[in-house]
């Protein structure tokens, strides 16, 4: 079976070294242990709060506004080709 740290780092897209894996596995263990106290508080029938100050149905008019030009959009990109971003093979 895949070790916990291998699974988490694979999902998180972090290519960790063996030394890092050892260290983070221990940290994860310690931190999660310290989080266990949460089970002592009763949260039956309590709703989760995703946002502390709720605002509802905030929309804006669907109109076209000025946006970055292609040249501006590419201004920070080192890897580009024919005015497009260049990236590694995805499939």
């Amino acid at each position: 079976m895949e070790e916990r740290i291998d699974k988490v780092s694979r999902i998180a897209r972090l290519e960790l070294t063996a030394e890092e894996k050892k260290r983070f596995e221990k940290d994860l263990d310690d931190i999660l242990k310290s989080f266990r106290k949460l089970s002592a508080i009763n949260t039956d029938r309590i709703k989760p709060t995703f946002q502390p100050v709720e605002v509802k149905n905030i929309t804006r008019k669907d109109i076209i506004e000025e946006s970055l030009s292609q040249k501006e959009s590419l201004a920070n990109a080192k890897n580009r080709e024919d005015n497009y971003f260049r990236g590694p093979k995805a499939i």
């Binding site: 949460l38 949260t43 709703k47 995703f50």
Partner: peptide
């Protein structure tokens, strides 16, 4: 973890 933490946040507020 996550859902529990969000519910605890409700209680904290």
């Amino acid at each position: 973890y996550y859902l529990k933490a969000l519910k605890v946040r409700t209680l904290v507020i």
